[in-house]
Amino acid sequence: MQDGIVLTKVDEFLSWGRKNSLWPMTFGLACCAIEMMATGANKYDLERFGCGAFMATPRRADLMIVAGTVTLKMATRVRTLWEQMAEPKYVLSMGSCANKGGPYWQHGYHVLKGVEEVVPVDVYVPGCPPRPEALIEGIMTLQKKIASERLLRKKWIKHVG
């Protein structure tokens, strides 16, 4: 099938549906988890973006917010949980510990320098911990990324292997 106006519009419609109902998985590891909980509470409401349903199980979630330091002992579990999520799935790395190791990069013999060593990351949110507004901006950036995906126009395979 070639590109055309019909497929573009259908693509946009499907992406609109998917980006406005991202269901995050509760993967709070450390201090950033508290800021994630505060973002979901009533002052900085995450429900209005459609992301209010925090699923505890990875089978039903499509966004994994890695909030906190990933240690070597935990890294295998992060990978297992990510593999249990169903496609299409996205990973948002929250906080400087999940981005590149955070304040523990120098002498942290047990700290993984960034969660990107084990799972592929879509959006990075810097901060230690990032403010709730920063996390909301990260989710909006992810929504922009999802809006530009070509579902029907090009056969998509993400995250092979």
């Binding site: 070597l72 890294a75 295998t76 590149k100 190791g101 990069w105 013999y109 320098k113 960034g114 060593e117």
Partner: peptide, 18 residues
């Protein structure tokens, strides 16, 4: 104590980050 660079296949101290 000297830390190891690899643990179970994961790079603990990747070259491009240190």
């Amino acid at each position: 104590y000297v830390a190891a660079k690899f643990y179970n296949g994961m790079q603990v101290y990747p070259d491009h980050k240190m």
